[in-house]
Simulated assay, not measured.
Amino acid sequence: MVSCFGCPVLGSVKVYVPPGTGTISNFTTVPGMVSTNGESEFAVFCATPAPHIPSATAQGSRMPIANRRDGSRDERSGRALMVFRLNLLVTSLLLLWTGSVYSTLRPAARLHRYQYSQMAMGVQVTLTVYAPDQATAERACAAAFERIAEIEQIASDYRPDSELMRLCAQAGGPPIRVSEELFTLLHRAQQLARRTEGAFDVTVGPYVQLWRRARRTGQFPTEQELQEARARVGYEKVVLDERERTVQLLVPGMRLDLGGIAKGYALDEALCVLQQHGVHHALLEAGGDIVAGLAPPGVAGWRIRVENAAPERQWVYLARGAISSSGDTEQYVEYDG
């Protein structure tokens, strides 16, 4: 068998997982995280045959060993010298190229599958990673969860002391200087709002509060409540100043909800943290938001099932990308039967 680089493959992709889909090999608990671990193995071996170095005395060539007595060089010897130098150059380049190919295809370390879960941003966040050992996986995932917690403290609308809620408490007042991270989120949200002409709008917080109450108590919003909420909603009521990094909410009672953008941002940041710790094969999930790093070793992508989708669209294979879904499978309100 020959690889795409033209060199023979001595080994092949080998994948090991415990018997049965989803089977775990052990169970680990660390503070704030639950782990279910399995393992896999991936190795690719590639070797390039030793390049042929043309002999200087091969048939049809002759080494230039002497000049003629009259001072002129043998014409055939000159041509042989040129050919020899050219062959030597090509051989040297080939050796360098072979070394670079082999360095990229050298045997990968044996990787094990680890999975950790933690409540964050109002949902269960699950990190599934492949790492060389448990210590590496726990260290990387703990740091990733810390990064998610940092963003939650900035962007959560569930926490009254979050930076976002402190900003909303100043609605109707003067511009408020905010952190660079919160400003980045709001700036991106406003860009999306303008591009979608308000279909995406983080000022929908007053509506969200009414429907959260309806889900919790079964009390449907009245028409008056909906009208009052409508007066406090609209992305055009948010003023951003990039130079001063300030945000002004123009109408009293406005409430921002970053649920449509903050979870994806938090998962992107968490993936960066995993990669900084040397963990590149990872899948991060928070509710309907999923972010993927490299695929599991030996396969093309992470296999993801989309609940309640059409049969031909239920399975998605994802690597180095993201996917988000939304629906009434888990959060819904029944009214009048």
Score class of each variant (00 low, 15 high):
1 M>W: 07
3 S>T: 14
7 C>K: 11
7 C>Q: 02
9 V>L: 07
10 L>S: 15
12 S>I: 13
16 Y>K: 14
17 V>A: 02
24 I>F: 07
38 G>S: 06
39 E>N: 04
43 A>H: 05
44 V>T: 07
45 F>N: 09
46 C>Y: 10
50 A>H: 11
57 T>Y: 00
60 G>S: 07
64 P>D: 14
64 P>Q: 13
68 R>H: 10
70 D>A: 11
71 G>W: 11
78 G>R: 12
78 G>F: 03
80 A>E: 00
81 L>V: 09
84 F>C: 04
86 L>A: 12
91 T>N: 04
91 T>W: 06
91 T>Y: 00
96 L>I: 00
103 S>Y: 03
106 R>C: 06
109 A>D: 03
110 R>Y: 02
111 L>E: 03
111 L>S: 02
111 L>Y: 06
113 R>T: 06
114 Y>D: 01
118 Q>D: 02
120 A>Y: 02
122 G>S: 04
125 V>Q: 00
126 T>N: 09
126 T>K: 13
127 L>H: 14
131 A>Y: 03
131 A>L: 07
133 D>N: 03
133 D>Q: 06
134 Q>E: 14
135 A>M: 03
137 A>K: 10
141 C>I: 13
141 C>E: 10
142 A>R: 05
147 R>M: 11
148 I>V: 15
150 E>N: 15
157 D>F: 10
158 Y>P: 04
164 L>V: 08
165 M>Q: 02
166 R>C: 02
167 L>S: 07
171 A>P: 02
173 G>S: 09
176 I>L: 13
183 F>M: 09
184 T>Y: 15
187 H>P: 05
195 R>I: 02
196 T>F: 06
198 G>H: 08
200 F>L: 15
201 D>P: 03
205 G>A: 04
206 P>C: 03
207 Y>A: 10
208 V>D: 15
211 W>P: 01
212 R>M: 07
214 A>L: 12
217 T>H: 13
221 P>D: 00
222 T>Q: 05
223 E>Q: 14
228 E>W: 01
230 R>E: 09
230 R>W: 06
231 A>G: 00
232 R>D: 12
233 V>R: 02
235 Y>D: 04
237 K>L: 07
238 V>E: 06
238 V>F: 11
241 D>F: 02
242 E>Q: 15
244 E>I: 08
246 T>K: 04
248 Q>P: 13
248 Q>H: 03
255 R>G: 10
257 D>G: 00
260 G>K: 00
262 A>C: 06
263 K>H: 12
264 G>R: 13
265 Y>W: 10
266 A>N: 03
266 A>L: 00
268 D>E: 13
269 E>S: 09
270 A>Q: 02
271 L>G: 01
274 L>I: 01
277 H>L: 03
282 A>Q: 00
285 E>L: 05
287 G>Q: 09
288 G>Y: 08
289 D>H: 01
289 D>I: 04
290 I>L: 13
292 A>R: 10
293 G>V: 08
296 P>H: 00
296 P>I: 05
296 P>N: 01
296 P>D: 08
297 P>E: 08
297 P>K: 03
299 V>S: 09
300 A>I: 13
300 A>L: 07
301 G>I: 12
302 W>S: 05
302 W>G: 12
304 I>R: 00
304 I>K: 10
306 V>Q: 11
307 E>R: 11
308 N>R: 06
311 P>Y: 05
313 R>A: 14
317 Y>C: 07
319 A>Q: 06
319 A>T: 09
322 A>Y: 01
325 S>M: 01
327 G>R: 05
328 D>Y: 12
328 D>I: 14
337 G>P: 10
